[in-house]
Design a protein around this nucleic acid. Structure first.
Lengths: 230, 230
DNA sequence: TTGGACTGTTACAGAACCGTCGCATAGGCT
DNA sequence: AGCCTATGCGACGGTTCTGTAACAGTCCAA
């Protein structure tokens, strides 16, 4: 596995247009992308490229995504690689089956590219050793996803689960403005229905937690648009 | 691309009856529809209207849909616009050819209007977030849509939501003169009714914000026509 | 069961922003 | 120059958006 430098992603998708768009976005996010348009090539490329993560389309001619996933999870040397499945079917049945074959996460088409990126990073963080630069940092805020701990300066902060996820999301792309809808997707999950005003309240709680031991407010409100860090 | 408000669709279909029905449904779905009945007009309208998505009939006299698609995907500035092809031929061969020319999706006649709507929305969702990463620049003004930040020289400017959208619109095509009506369409949204003089006021506010830390007025008034940048 | 921690919703006040009006001024044409 | 129109600008009332506190419901551990 590539310990330092760019994380490697193997992108397996048979439809050229979608693959191109995804590859573009992944590269823009700092991933080194290897592409395959069928399951057989994918199996070969896993050994050749040793990707850190695999994004796998469900429906493909010949060897399907689900089959690739099953095979990879059977082999000890590839079992540890996180797999995110893409599927056009939204039914819960498929979801279950996907997870039973060992996929680590699951995104339904049409997906938000933003969400997919976030999930990819999340999976990466999960498997990478915590000592190697996976600690998110922004100004004097440090966040260690592994130990679930947040520091501001030297102080340890105490955040609730939602505040924590919210901060993780914001810290993954400091400066980027997230709309309330995007934050609901990324933090709460896309199928949950809660009022967008709820985001305001949790942003407020996060702010209070972050500023409890002093320090400026690191969260920026962009009127009419959303929130961002810094 | 229309950043806020309704997504714009360019509908290219030579048969009036089908075009009318589709336009009606698309408008009911909240799209702002521009229509064309041949490929040549379509090519012109793409530049004029800058649609977010194009629905393109395969079979048309003179310049065919497939040809329009090929041409659009060759030009960098139009390549990113998703294209959905409509075709009466169901053969897989055509499907392949359609995708090879770069069409992003493909619907076979007779299609379900509902399905077409769903696919259109799906394509939109797919492309919208990928506008990220582009920083607009004009002379000493920089605008980062992702972080919602505007700089003039080294100074950070503070703009209201409408001023921001207005500046985005102007910066997307520096030098181009926008009429007040066009600006109302692009910035406020197509169905909103506000007085055209409102544009003047916001241009004034934008000017003030841009010149607050010194520097020349970058907005040009074209008497009797509208405004442009530079 | 009880208590505490957490969450989503609502209400309200203050701030930011918007659209319109009236008038002053500048531009262009005869 | 003189006239007419288009534009710039300040002010104002109304609307929308945001921050915060309060509250009730849920979940989990002791």
């Amino acid at each position: 596995m590539a310990k330092g430098g760019q994380p490697r992603v193997l992108l397996v998708e048979d439809e050229p247009a979608q693959r191109t768009v995804l590859a573009y976005n992944l590269e823009a996010e700092g991933f080194a992308v290897t592409q395959a348009d069928n399951g057989e090539d994918a199996m070969v490329l896993v050994d050749e490229e040793e990707p850190d993560i695999i994004i796998l389309d469900w429906m493909m001619p010949k060897v399907s995504g689900i089959e690739v996933c099953r095979r990879l999870k059977m082999r000890p040397e590839t079992r540890g690689i996180p797999i995110i499945m893409l599927s056009a079917r939204a039914e819960e049945v498929d979801r279950i089956r996907g997870l039973e074959t060992g996929a680590d996460d699951y995104v339904i088409k049409p997906y938000s590219v933003l969400e997919l990126m976030a999930r990819a990073r999340a999976q990466l963080r999960r498997v990478r050793p915590s000592t190697a630069g996976v600690v998110l940092e922004h100004e004097d805020i440090r966040l260690d996803p592994e130990s679930h701990r947040v520091y501001r300066g030297e102080k340890v902060l105490k955040l609730g689960p939602t505040e924590f996820k919210l901060l993780v999301t914001l810290m993954e792309r400091p400066g980027r403005v997230f709309s309330r809808e995007q934050l609901l997707d990324l933090v709460w999950g896309r199928d949950i229905y809660v009022d967008t005003r709820t985001v305001d309240v949790h942003v407020g709680r996060l702010r209070k937690s972050l500023m409890l031991h002093g320090g400026a407010d690191p969260v920026r409100t962009v009127r009419g648009a959303g929130y961002s860090l810094g």
